[in-house]
Design a protein around this nucleic acid. Sequence first.
DNA 1: TTGCTCAACTTGTTGGTACAAGCTGATGCA
DNA 2: TGCATCAGCTTGTACCAACAAGTTGAGCAA
Lengths: 257, 257
Amino acid sequence: MSKQPKYRQVADALRREIDSGTYAPGARLPSESDLMKRFDASRNTVRNGLSLLVSQGLVSSSQGLGYEVRSHEVFKLNASRFENLNFPQNGDAYRTDVTNAGRRPHQTFRVEITPASADVAERLKVDLGSTTVLRFCHRYVDDVPWSTQATWYPGWLTERSPRLAEPGDIEEGTTRYLASHGIEQVGYFDEIAARMPTPEEARLLEISAGVPVLLWTRTGYSEDRPIRCTVTTFRGDLNQMNYEIGTLSGREENEPQ
Amino acid sequence: MSKQPKYRQVADALRREIDSGTYAPGARLPSESDLMKRFDASRNTVRNGLSLLVSQGLVSSSQGLGYEVRSHEVFKLNASRFENLNFPQNGDAYRTDVTNAGRRPHQTFRVEITPASADVAERLKVDLGSTTVLRFCHRYVDDVPWSTQATWYPGWLTERSPRLAEPGDIEEGTTRYLASHGIEQVGYFDEIAARMPTPEEARLLEISAGVPVLLWTRTGYSEDRPIRCTVTTFRGDLNQMNYEIGTLSGREENEPQ
DNA sequence: TTGCTCAACTTGTTGGTACAAGCTGATGCA
DNA sequence: TGCATCAGCTTGTACCAACAAGTTGAGCAA
């Protein structure tokens, strides 16, 4: 009848029940010992099946509490409007986006002066190891870690716009601040990739097993040359990126205010 | 001294050695019994540590062969040029992109007539359950499964452009075919998300444990209304999506021919 | 030389045991 | 009443054993 190994049968059966709504998001699965009786399997086998579901991001487990079906409510980020001067926003887009969604934003902030790594040097078209300013940002929504954002600026740029290298937030938004110094971002190049988090990323974003990260690398250009490189790391289960290109007839949602 | 559980020490040690190049991509890790001796641990403990690395996508294992450090060579897809009539291409973009990269494309193809699901109905602005044409595509590069692509067209559109509902490829590309019937795509809305694959997706794309999928949903608009909805599922370890917006001074690569 | 078999390796699956550690509610003392 | 404790649940870690199944190369037979 079934050629599938038993631990896989356990995982498949539970997955079907999760999909069909028997166990709704947020609900607790039966305990390991319950499942041992139900599937006539050893604890190792049951745990094997459950760990499959955990590594696939369907359920999470915690000691003493049991296994819980994950719920995912995604936050939609409109990347093509982000930092677009044609859509006026007060301050930076993250804060307004989150506030508009009725959530509470919070962020920690850090500024460093570092030599350019290979990745950054290539994108900013500067020499490997040359001086760059790194503005690093760790963002929360309702006290849940949401994303980390690292922006590198080339050394020549920070000479013309010194506030970049100073600690402390730039209230009006860096894009606007740079524009006021005659450096306008006229285009950008976005790269989007997905992978499993490193232990460091998992720690910073409080990512549990089975949740990938979205890597968003934006290189901004002035008329002349690259002016910044921003790498944003998102929790993949909580975020989605959207791009609007051209004319979109009949779309009402997400219109600029 | 070490508060970390032993299986985690195993994983961390191996991870460091992978990062530092002791085990290069493609190289084999020591066997489980070797690691048992090295870490003075039981086989289960060693396997626990290794399975951590597997679920993080760093290594893969196969019965009889051992554990191998994964190598990832990513294929870059320029989504903002994809299906853009301003960048003339022969036939569809996938084939030319892959061929230009010196790889061999191959695809299987299927056409169905199906009622609209909730997701599709919402995006195409048609009634739930109304007739749509689904063109499904399973793409390979050098015989490695690369992506699956499902495109739904609303019923009203296929009445005006009947070849959509017929089996068989549309040589000149569907965007161009539709344009020749007076239906021009003047804008689109892209949604990008990442998650772990379903068992079905893992099977179709031959994804091993620890590799997420990239979900790319493109809804295309004519002047009037939505004309199509395309959901592409990529292997996250092999693909990266790029967007070029505005003017990008000094970028040479990926220029149109 | 060619081809087959098989031993010796590898990981995969499944069973068992024991104890550690986190959480919750009941119990009972002050 | 209020609070501390603890029993009894949960999952986490670690060990052991046995056999299944995939891979490879040595070595023998045709």
